[in-house]
Design a protein around this nucleic acid. Structure first.
Length: 341
DNA sequence: AATACGTGGTA
DNA sequence: TTACCAAGTAT
């Protein structure tokens, strides 16, 4: 047993007992609740998950309750959270829990990894935090913390190196369910990417970066991959107080979410070409425009309005029935532009 | 191995 | 205003 690792885990566990933030799942949480939490937390800041998780648990308290629900109902609760394929994966996972695992969330990493949308991190998090298994986890927080502990500043520290470090730590700790959450929390609140709070860090005396005063050196110079620029032409069709909506494809961007009729293009298009592309007859009126930035895209939205007759290619909604339809944040912006006219 | 996949907060 | 960043996974 590595003596230094043991000391580090003791300090971090003790610090967490005193300094843990309050989150709803820390009151009480079933393994299913933990699994839902981890899905929501993938690439999403945990503070944002905290406000949404209770609603999700109210509506889908068990794997069964989610497995029998429509995708629409799940996406409705997922609105604004982003990475909407997670909602699909969560449904598939709930179905597999019912069909393959007898309705119980599996407790072993190997079993958890069979679930759609569950990778190395999520499997380790559920096994350790929900079942107190000695499974390691590495997220962005843990990666940063273990790199600083060993003073690895270079960008190219392989992911697997961090997993080895995390594994050594969890094998040394007292309570895996406490320690893994504590390690992430330390990264999120103390050992932050910029200006880490080393003065308050429970393991600063065991941290090689702190000893060398390199904790402020850039850890991850992530190559800023250039975003492709796209143009989305959104047309708010109105008819007797109703607006037209269509459901996006089940794959790709905003999969399964609803939108006003939209023409997507890699280059700018003249107005006439938009009406033609969408097979619309009326006159388009410009309503406004905005940029919507994603991780890998910059989408230039141009919003038009058009009064038309009923068209059964679309679903027609009044403002009252709008809430029951899952919309991306970009679509909320489109509707806001339309309302502002 | 590299890319797709969202969003909103912060500096 | 731009850039960075987040309790990652699938293909």
């Amino acid at each position: 047993m590595n003596c230094r690792a043991k000391k580090i885990t003791i300090d971090i566990e003790r610090w967490f007992q005193e300094s843990a933030r309050v989150f709803p799942w820390r009151e009480s949480c079933t393994p299913w609740g933990r699994l839902v939490c981890e899905f929501m937390a993938q690439q999403t800041q945990i503070e944002r998950v905290a406000s949404r998780w209770p609603l999700m648990m109210d509506r889908f308290p068990t794997p069964e309750s989610l497995a029998v629900s429509d995708m629409e109902d799940i996406l409705e609760l997922w609105q604004g959270l982003g990475y909407y394929r997670r909602a699909k994966h969560l449904k598939q996972t709930s179905e597999m829990i019912i069909d393959v695992f007898g309705g119980e969330v599996p407790c072993e990493v190997e079993s958890l990894l069979q679930l759609p949308g569950v990778g190395r991190y999520t499997a380790g998090a559920v096994a350790s935090i929900a079942f107190n298994k000695r499974a390691s986890i590495v997220d962005a927080n843990v990666h940063r913390v273990v790199c600083r502990i060993e003073n690895k500043n270079d960008v190219s520290v392989p992911c697997n190196w961090s997993w080895e470090q995390a594994t050594e730590l969890v094998l040394s700790c007292t309570f895996p369910n406490v320690f893994n959450e504590a390690l992430m929390e330390l990264g999120a609140t103390v050992c932050t990417p910029k200006s880490p709070s080393c003065d308050w860090c429970p393991i600063s005396d065991k941290c090689n970066a702190f000893a060398e005063n390199t904790q402020n050196e850039v850890l991850q110079a992530k190559s800023s991959l250039s975003r492709k620029r796209l143009h989305h032409y959104a047309v708010v069709l109105t008819c007797k107080g109703r607006r037209a909506f269509e459901k996006r494809d089940d794959h790709g961007l905003w999969a399964g979410m609803w939108q006003v009729p939209t023409l997507e293009s890699s280059k700018k298009l003249p107005k006439a070409q938009i009406a033609e592309g969408l097979h619309l007859k009326g006159n388009l009126t410009f309503a406004g425009s905005f940029e919507h930035t994603l991780t890998h895209r910059i989408i230039n939205f141009t919003v038009y309005t058009c009064e038309v007759g009923l068209d059964n290619r679309f679903a027609w909604h009044t403002s009252d029935t709008l809430d029951s339809m899952p919309l991306s944040s970009a679509q909320r912006k489109v509707l806001a532009v339309h309302c502002a006219v």
